[in-house]
Every structure is written in C-alpha cells, then in structure tokens.
Design a protein around this nucleic acid. Sequence first.
DNA 1: TTTTATTCAGACAAAAATATCCGATTTTTT
DNA 2: AAAAAATCGGATATTTTTGTCTGAATAAAA
Lengths: 145, 145
Amino acid sequence: MFFSKSCEYGIRATIYIAVQSLQDKRVSLVEISEKIDSPKSFTAKILQKLARNKIIVSVKGQTGGYEIPKDDMEKITLSQIVLAIDGSGLYSLCGLGLKKCSEKQPCPVHKDFKLIREKIRKTLESTNLSMLASSIDDGLSYLKI
Amino acid sequence: MFFSKSCEYGIRATIYIAVQSLQDKRVSLVEISEKIDSPKSFTAKILQKLARNKIIVSVKGQTGGYEIPKDDMEKITLSQIVLAIDGSGLYSLCGLGLKKCSEKQPCPVHKDFKLIREKIRKTLESTNLSMLASSIDDGLSYLKI
DNA sequence: TTTTATTCAGACAAAAATATCCGATTTTTT
DNA sequence: AAAAAATCGGATATTTTTGTCTGAATAAAA
C-alpha cells in the first residue's frame, strides 16, 4: 500500500528489536520472525539491509542477534527505515506514474498528491523509534498478527 | 506507490477518454495507449475492467472505441476509478501489514496513518472527472510521459 | 578443541504483478 | 456478402516481489 511487504516487516522488526533493547535484551532472527509473524529467511535479508544502514546492530556468534543502542532510538526515524528499504519513491514519484511530472508540467493530481506526500513525509520524519517502542511498552499499541 | 501500475494506467486512460469525449470524440485502444504511453494489450484489460464498472463505455465494431458520457463526468470520482482497479486497500489496510490492527488493538503508527488515509480518501472522493479533464483542456496539467 | 547457536551471502523457488498474443466476436464500410 | 477495424476473453510469457535453502563464517559454551 504505502510500503512494500519488505518494508512492513522491516519496520515491525525494528520496533520489536527496539522494545527488547530497552530491556537490554539482544534478540535472534528466529525470535524476531516469530514475534512479528514474518517469514524467517526473508526477514533475514531485510535485517541485513537494516544493519548495513546502521539502523540496527547485528552481532554474530552463539549469543549473537540484533540490538539497537538506546542512545540511537531518539535519532532513528520511521523515515530512515523506509528510505533504507523502499527508497525515496514515496516522497518523490508522480501519483500517476508520469516520469516528467513536475511543477512546470504537473499531472492532473499533482497538487493534491504533493500535499499528501508532504503529510506522509512529516509523519515519517517526526516519528522516532523511542516513540514507537514506548507506545508498545505502555500497552498503547501492538505488533502481533 | 499509492496505486498499482494498472491503476495509474487506468486513471490516465480515463482522463484521456474524458478529454476526448468532451469534444465528442470516441477513441480507440491504440490511440489511448499511444497518448498515455502505456502497453497496449495490458491497457486493454484495464479498459475492460473500467467498462464493466460503468466508468467508461466501450463500443465494439469498426468505428468502436471508448467514450464517457458528458453527463457522467461530474459523478465519476477518482475514488471510483481506484476502487474499481485496486480495491479498497488504500482506505482500510494497516500501514504495517497487521491483519488485526484496529482502534482496540492499534499498530504503532495507526493514528498517524488513519489521518493520512482519510486525507487521501477525501482527495480521491472530492476529485471528479470533470475537474481532471478540464484541467488538461485548460493547459493547467498534462498526461504525457 | 569441539560443539553449538548464531549471522552472512549467494543461489534458487514460488507467487504476484505486469505485459503479450491470438482467435472469436461485433459492427461498419465497401 | 465480404472485408476491415475495432473490442473481448482466454492463454501464455516476462518481470518483480516475496520467500526458501544451504553452506560458510563467527563467536561463545562445553
């Protein structure tokens, strides 16, 4: 819809890791994919991408897994996660798929979609991991099913 | 992004047909796909779906093609086109892909995305074909490339 | 030092979305 | 009546997205 399946999994995984990291728990791929109900191997690829983008930290070896430093949570925004996985299309592409759509040569829905995209951008940029993780800790929101 | 490729083609095709219908011109599949720069046979499928949904009128035979009665243009909204092709997912599905996301059990981005979806819904429902077609007639917007 | 539990990387597979082809049907024109 | 130009519908093909498998690398535990 707004995000690819990969991105949905990526966001859910990141939030889950954040919640656990707040309690100093490092989590494994198996645990993550069970808790957020996502395909294990596919999720592995996404976590790798998030790690390469410095959004999560991966640790190899027997007690390894994934974690997020608490100090980073304020800085990591939803926007950064989306950009890492889906790229910037949501912010820039024409709603009707026109390559040359622009202010000078706008498509028929250009103005309206610009407003919508701006609203999405503001939302994603102003939502950080702390907010997302604490809303779950507080029982105000959920990640399951 | 917001819409599938099919839907983008469908919207562009509908607008093009509307513009031509305003000048009492019935247009063929070949002309449409050339003018909106879309794959011919694929576009044919989409036009069939739009015709079945009474958004456009298809006429068979040698002088056949597609048209939209002028009187319908005020009533046909962007929303109807999107619903006919992509369904209602844009209005209803959880931003994070959670099946059970709801007011009672919201995902961490539920509130924000509800606002965004409402904005999109309002935009699509308040934009009709007359508006889209006339913006092109007036040279205020474009469909090419 | 060996075993175990983990991530990593690349190849592979399945499903969904996008795109093409072709024969049948329809209707106008010749 | 035949030919021409169009849509329709179903089968097929291609591409992209989603998902799986397997062996190597890593690091802690036994």
